[in-house]
Each structure stands twice: as structure tokens, then as C-alpha cells.
Amino acid sequence: MASETELLAKEVHAKTHVKVDNEKVAQFVAAKLGAEIDAKVAESAGRVDKLLKSQEARLAELGDARVSEVTKTLQGATKGLERAERVVSGMKRSLTWAGVGKVAAASIPFALVVLALVMLLGLGGQLFGIGPVFSWAWASFAAAEAWWAKVLIALSTIAGALGVLWVVKVLGQKLYATYRGW
């Protein structure tokens, strides 16, 4: 019995040491893992391909919509340019004698204002006493000895001249309004 126990102990002891063949284990694990990794990569590649195709379809839709929008905008701009070209060509044709007459009629108020200004400075000015008033102001300015008197005379003369110009301007605007509604 002792020899059998010894023999069993030797067998148990021999079997407790596991000898692993690393090459066979590596081949087995590599085959299993390789197959699983290939399956996972193929699955992931399929999902990525599907996502890329859907994204590509969305981008194509957006691109088509944007192209359509830009096309509409360009067509609107082209219509506006065509309208402007028609207006310009119409303006070229409208500059006839009737147009010249309208320009002349529009310039009548300005001519009347110029005539009034000339009259004020010339004969009309003599009739209204503008010339003698300015002559008197100049003589007074030259005769004044104090600087403050000269400043006072100069300021009052300039204020009077500006007042006359203001009256001419107001009358010119009234004439312009009258002839504009003509």
C-alpha cells in the first residue's frame, strides 16, 4: 500500500505541473481572436460605410438646395439688371426736345433769382438804396477811429447783406415751388 501511495503521489505530483506549449496556445488564441477581430472590424466598417453614405446623401441634398437658392438669387439679380438696362436705354431716347424744354422750364426760377440778384446789385440796388447803404457803411467804417466802432459797423453791414440774401433765397424758393407745380 505504501508503494502504491507513493506511486499515486508521484503521478499526482507529475500532473500538478502543467506544461504549456506556447506556440500551440498562441496559434489557437490568434486564430480565435483574429476571427473575432475580423468580424468586429467588418461590422464597424459596415456601420461607418452606412453612415458615410447617409451623410453623403444629406450633403448632396443640401448642395442641391443651395445651388437652387443661388440660382434663384442670380435670376432675380439678372432681372434687376435687365430692368436697369431698359431704363437706361429709355433715358437715352427720352433726352429729346421735350426733355430740353422740361430742363429749361425747371431752370426758370433760378433765372429769376439771378435776375433779382443782378437787379439788387445793379439798377435795382440803386432804386432800393442798396448801393448808397453800402457806400455809407464803407465811408463810416473808414471814418471810425475806434476798433470797436469798426467791428460794429462791419457786423451790421454783413448782417444787412445776409438779410438781403436770405430774402432773395426765400423768394427764389417760393418761385421754385410755384413753377414746380406747373
Results as ranks from 00 to 15, higher is better:
1 M>E: 14
2 A>W: 12
2 A>S: 13
4 E>P: 01
6 E>H: 13
6 E>S: 15
7 L>W: 07
7 L>C: 09
7 L>R: 15
11 E>K: 15
11 E>T: 03
13 H>I: 09
14 A>G: 06
14 A>K: 10
15 K>R: 14
17 H>L: 11
21 D>Y: 03
21 D>S: 02
21 D>E: 10
21 D>H: 02
23 E>A: 10
23 E>F: 03
29 V>N: 04
30 A>M: 13
31 A>Y: 05
34 G>P: 08
35 A>H: 12
35 A>C: 10
36 E>F: 09
36 E>S: 12
38 D>R: 05
39 A>Q: 15
39 A>K: 15
40 K>H: 06
40 K>S: 06
42 A>I: 05
43 E>C: 09
45 A>W: 00
47 R>H: 11
48 V>S: 08
48 V>P: 02
48 V>N: 09
49 D>H: 10
50 K>N: 08
50 K>Q: 04
54 S>T: 04
54 S>Q: 07
54 S>W: 13
54 S>E: 14
58 R>M: 09
59 L>S: 06
60 A>M: 08
61 E>N: 07
61 E>S: 05
63 G>T: 08
65 A>S: 05
68 S>I: 07
70 V>T: 04
71 T>Y: 02
72 K>S: 15
73 T>W: 12
74 L>P: 11
75 Q>M: 14
76 G>Q: 15
76 G>A: 14
80 G>Q: 12
83 R>G: 07
84 A>C: 04
87 V>A: 06
88 V>S: 07
89 S>D: 14
93 R>Q: 15
97 W>G: 09
97 W>E: 04
100 V>Y: 14
101 G>C: 01
102 K>L: 10
103 V>N: 00
103 V>L: 12
104 A>E: 02
105 A>P: 00
109 P>E: 06
110 F>Y: 02
115 L>C: 03
117 L>Q: 04
118 V>H: 01
120 L>K: 04
121 L>M: 10
121 L>F: 06
125 G>H: 11
125 G>F: 08
126 Q>N: 08
129 G>A: 12
129 G>E: 07
131 G>H: 08
132 P>S: 10
132 P>E: 07
133 V>T: 07
136 W>V: 04
136 W>A: 02
137 A>N: 07
138 W>H: 06
139 A>F: 05
140 S>E: 10
140 S>K: 05
143 A>R: 14
145 E>H: 05
145 E>D: 10
149 A>E: 00
150 K>I: 02
150 K>A: 08
151 V>R: 05
152 L>S: 02
152 L>I: 01
153 I>C: 04
153 I>T: 01
155 L>Q: 00
156 S>T: 08
157 T>W: 01
160 G>D: 03
160 G>N: 07
162 L>C: 10
164 V>D: 00
164 V>N: 02
166 W>R: 12
166 W>D: 07
166 W>A: 11
167 V>L: 13
168 V>T: 08
170 V>W: 14
170 V>N: 01
171 L>I: 02
173 Q>K: 02
173 Q>G: 00
175 L>W: 13
179 Y>N: 01
180 R>V: 04
180 R>G: 11
181 G>E: 07
